[in-house]
Structure formats: C-alpha cells, structure tokens
C-alpha cells in the first residue's frame, strides 16, 4: 500500500508541507486562508537542535490508536488503509487514549468544535498525492509503495559512492 515517505536529508524546514496540509483541511483551501481560519496541520515539522525532521502518520497496520480508541471512532479502512477517526458513525470522545498510544506523536487535540476531538492525518481522504507531498519544493516527501521508495534511496546512495570513486 502506498505510504507517505520522507527523505530526511532533503528537508530544509520550509514548512510548506505543514501549510499545505492546513490549507487542504481548511474551508478556504488556501494557505493564507488556513492561517486566518486557524486550521491546524496534521503533519509535524519537529526539530533536533534546529535541524528539521518531518514526522508523519504511518497509518499503521496494527495501529495503536485504533486499538486504544474506546469510542470506536478510530478505524483503519480495509480498502484504502487510511486510519482516521473522521467520517465514521462513531464520534470521537476526546479521551486522548490515542494520543497516549501513538509512538510517533502525530495525533493532537483539536479544541475548535463544541467538544474537543483527536485530530490526525487522514491522508487527504484518499486524494493522490496528499497535499503535503504535492507541496514539497525539496523532493523530500514521496507518496509511493515503500519498496519503490527503498529502490530510489538505494540508487541515490549508490550514485554517491560512484561519484566518489
């Protein structure tokens, strides 16, 4: 199944992915609009001593967030593989068990509505490529099968060795 994959070396912390994600999930669908609406992003640009590291939801196979959801809202779609608590009959209760369980720390609290809910990447509801990947100006984000990505990385590394020799 296709995943959002990251070439960390290419990321330069420009925050385009974060802004594009917010825009995609806003009403206005624009970056300035998302800023004005206060739409949160679901991809995170973390850092280690100022060095940027994008962290995205992996839509895990045995997703800990799904296991810990006690309202039944968080589900993994058997067809698309997308893990989301939105668009299901069950409503998120904002209990934060999923935040407690996610080993990547990619679920956040969303206080915008009447009740607080957990918010996470919904892979742009299946839109291909997801907004973050489409927006990256540095070729740091990919949306493809992990095997395909590994192949690309292998070739990149090989090229480095060839150049040196």
């Amino acid at each position: 199944m296709k995943e959002i994959l990251v070439d960390f070396e290419k990321c330069n912390g420009c925050l385009m992915c974060v802004q594009a994600c917010a825009a995609e999930h806003s009403l206005s669908k624009t970056i300035p609009g998302a800023l004005a609406e206060g739409t949160p992003a679901r991809i995170f640009l973390q850092h280690v001593k100022g060095s940027p590291v994008p962290i995205v939801c992996r839509h895990c196979e045995e997703a800990p967030c799904v296991d810990s959801c006690m309202s039944g809202a968080m589900k993994k779609d058997p067809v698309t593989g997308i893990v989301t608590n939105e668009g299901n009959d069950q409503e998120c209760a904002g209990c934060w068990m999923c935040i407690m369980s996610c080993p990547y720390g990619v679920i956040i609290q969303d206080h915008r509505g009447k009740t607080a809910k957990a918010l996470k990447c919904d892979r742009c509801q299946g839109k291909e490529p997801p907004a973050c990947v489409a927006s990256c100006p540095n070729n740091a984000l990919f949306f493809m099968e992990p095997e395909e990505f590994s192949e690309i990385r292998r070739r990149q590394e090989a090229k480095k060795i060839l150049v040196v020799s």
Binding site: P64, W96, C98, I99, M100, S101, C102, P103, Y104, G105, I107, I108, Q109
Partner: peptide, 10 residues
C-alpha cells in the same frame, strides 16, 4: 502538555 505521551510511552 500530553502531545508526546505516545512517544514516551513507546
């Protein structure tokens, strides 16, 4: 601040 609870939990 519970944002990184899952990371620490892992």
């Amino acid at each position: 601040d519970i944002k990184q609870a899952g990371v620490l939990g892992a």
